[in-house]
Each structure stands twice: as structure tokens, then as C-alpha cells.
Amino acid sequence: MTSKESTLRSLRANQDLIAEHIVDQQLRGLNFSESRRQVSIRDATENIRQLADAIELESQITFNGYIVWLNDVLKGYGFDQSLLIDHLTLLVDYIEEYFAEDVGEMVRTYVFAAIAVVNPEGQAEQSFLENCGEYRDYAQTYLLALIEARRNDAVELILSAVNRENVSIEDLYIKIFTNVLYEIGRLWQSQRINVGQEHFATVVTQYIMSMLYEKIFTKELKTVKMMGVCVGDELHEIGIRMVCDIFEMNNWDSYYLGANVPLESIIGELERIKPQVLALSATTAHRVPQCIEIIKAIKVKTSGTKIIVGGRPFNMDPGLWVRVGADGHSVDAVGAVKLAQRLVNERV
């Protein structure tokens, strides 16, 4: 048995026991109710499950991404970062004490690499607006309008850019909207704006997108179909909506399902609509295991549909799409259209 196999077996067979031990160690001497203890054990079990999934995928980046997301969530609830680091350190200590040496080494490698990511010293933050290129001024003005709740100014800016300045909708989506929303997320995670401001930015952007639909949806006959779905109960489904819109503008018949779609419904729609391509979006690392489950089930139940994946976990780990069983990956919607066309042509 390899180190990877023994590590996976140890973690998955003992995840409840490990979780209970490290929670009791961390809560020792604290006045926690039993119900709060059980919630902590549940959360610790999920952390172990995510670690095992990352090890199975051989993706350190996936676990790093999950821990970064968890750290941001905990900060949002007012928890000090040291609690998460202590929790992860207790996990390593327990594994090294009670399990085989090779298991301990692998767990230590993954966990301490993730701790280093959430606990950097002296790293300068980089704004996502640096990725806007020639549209940096538009993006900056749009960002400020969203943060300051100036909806009419935000709408006027974008409609003017498209209608009078000839900014293409593809550039609007990829260079401006995507980077501004990433920046909004970064500002929220660092608690520089509140969750209401983050939601407002998303709603206004969706509203503007709906105002552009007369430019996107036409009556032209289209011979290829694609379907776009978010993995699980993603809150950030605007990205896959942009992907579907850009497919539509490139002469594809797009079907946007959004988020919170049960697996059986996804399969049912695939069988009913029969798209050539399914685009799956996972914006955070902890959605990757669900992505694997969906792809496996689809390949068992249906045939003929190519599956492409996108989202930050796949952008961060270029080989992850192969390990989840997809047929391809692209970092943005324009690239996804080109990839989809190539996959369809390969079938002909």
C-alpha cells in the first residue's frame, strides 16, 4: 500500500474519532455547550474530509484554497486566525502520534503548506483591478459606484461604455465585471466592506447584464447547445451566467441553470436538451469534491456531452481538471467557447 493509500484509509476510516479528539483538545477548559461542541466536531470532520479529498486529487492548491476560504469565513464571524492555526496543528499532532509515520508526514506536508498560505508575513496585497488592462479606469469608477451604492451612476457608466464607447460585451464581462467582482470579494474578505455592499454589487451587475440581453439573444438559428451549472449551492453564480451569455454571443444556444440544482435534475436536463457541452463552475476549492461526484454520475447516466470546468480552483491548479474527470478547462469564458468548439469538432 502506498503512502497516499494508507493516508486516505486512515483519514476516512477515523475522521469522526480524529475530529472529536482535536475539538476536545482545543475546547479544554472552555465553557462550551454540548450543542456547540457537536457543531465544532461536525466542522472538524469536514476539514478532515477536505484534506483527504485534496490528497486523493494530489492537489495541495485545492486544500490551500479551502483553508483560505475557511479562514475568511471565520474572520467574518469575528474569530481570531490563531484558532484555525491551532486547530490544524492539533490535527497534525494527533495524526503523527497515533498513525503510521508516512501518514503523519503526508498530513504534515499538506496542512503546514496551507497554514503558510493563510499566515503570510509581509506579503503585499494585489488588487484584481491590475488585470483590467486598458479598462482600468472604467473598472475603478464602477467599483467605487458599487461600494458607495450609486446604482444609477454604475448603470450609466456601463451602458455608456457599451453604447457610446464601443466596449464589447465580452471585454465588459471579462475585463471589467469579473475583476471588479473579484475585487469586491477581496475587500469583503478583508472586512473593508460589509456583506450588504458585496450583495449590492452582485445585484447591480446582474441588473446591468439583463439590460444588455437584447444585444446578446437573437433569433438566429443555432446548431450547437451548451448548458451552464454551478456546483452545489454556490452563491456566486454570476460567473457561469456570464459564460452562458458569451456562448450565446458566439452562436451557441445556451441554457443557464444556475445554482442549487439537484444532480438528478442536471441529468434530466441533459437528457432532455442534449447539449454538446456542459460547463460546470466551482468558485471555491471546497466545491471540487462535489464537482467530481457530478462528473462521475453524468458519465454513467449520459453520453455524448463534453464537460468543461471553470472557476478559481481550476485556474490555480492547471492539472486539476484532468483529475476531476472533465474533458477540459479554460480560465475565462472566451477561452471556454474556443475549447468547446474544439471538443465538438473532435466528435465530428
Rank of each mutant, 00 (worst) to 15 (best):
Y207C: 12
Q276A: 13
L143G: 04
M209S: 13
A113R: 12
L181V: 04
D102M: 05
K299P: 13
L90T: 00
L187E: 06
A19D: 04
S265T: 11
D80M: 04
S59I: 09
E46K: 13
G196Y: 11
S210A: 15
F32L: 11
N163K: 13
I273L: 13
Q50K: 03
Q206W: 04
I169G: 03
L280R: 05
L159A: 05
Q341F: 02
Y94P: 05
L257A: 06
M249C: 07
A285V: 04
E20F: 01
I193E: 06
S210I: 06
I292G: 02
D233P: 01
E121H: 08
K4F: 08
L144V: 14
T7E: 01
I55D: 04
Y135W: 14
R186K: 12
T305P: 09
D171A: 14
T202P: 05
E183F: 10
V243C: 09
K75Q: 08
L70M: 14
S40T: 08
W321P: 09
N345D: 15
V203L: 09
F200L: 11
E220Y: 08
E20H: 04
V224A: 03
L83A: 12
Q341R: 10
I267P: 02
L280V: 03
I95T: 11
I292N: 02
A282L: 05
K4Y: 03
A124W: 02
G104T: 00
G185N: 03
N131L: 15
V180A: 00
L235M: 15
H236G: 01
T305V: 15
F217S: 10
A326V: 07
L8Q: 06
N14V: 01
V103A: 00
V309T: 12
D245E: 10
A149R: 11
V195Y: 00
G76Q: 06
R28S: 13
A124E: 15
